[in-house]
Design a protein around this nucleic acid. Sequence first.
DNA 1: CAAGAGATCATCT
DNA 2: GATGATCTCTTGA
Length: 194
Amino acid sequence: MKIQRSFYAQPTIEVARQLLGKYLVRKHPVGTTVGKIVETEAYVGPHDLACHASKGRTARTEVMFGPPGHAYVYFIYGVYYCLNIVTEEIGHASAVLIRALEPIDGVELMQKRRRVEELRKLASGPGKLCLAMSIDKALNGADMSRGSVLYVEDRGGQAPKIIARPRVGVDYADKWKDKPWRFLIRGSEFVSKP
DNA sequence: CAAGAGATCATCT
DNA sequence: GATGATCTCTTGA
């Protein structure tokens, strides 16, 4: 079943942890791709210097200030897109970065888009998974709790064992850079880095 | 295997 | 004018 808005309205760290083991579904005219979420990162608000919202409310960060459950997609390094899901109440600018997926459905399509065969390398990173699932700026602001082109599904199963690590690529964030807000499913070989 | 460079542009100063 | 919530390729041990 599709995850709804009340789930995303929870505290950001809680959402980041609970998204592990859920399934990201991307419907596209060319075909549907599905991946199990195995790695996330929490960006908890404007006071968190690693969070884009710490730069203030701008055209780029606008979506994060809106209602939970919407997609915040941004372009980085002139090359890649990254997918986040907005969390907490309206006005609280926070989000969870989806960092890695275990390919489940539409694997051939992902391989074609990525031009890579090896499953472990298909979506093991925020930029890679956006390529694999054809996620770009057109999906920025999309409501993932209602829409049908991009959403997260709960397919049951056992709660995964979770490991927490410092976030990646945020060395500039002063005392916030060491916060253990990157979450991985223990033992998964599909994470971006062990 | 590890380390380093380059790609390439929207966003902010 | 500088830089980034990344990735791939090349080089060298």
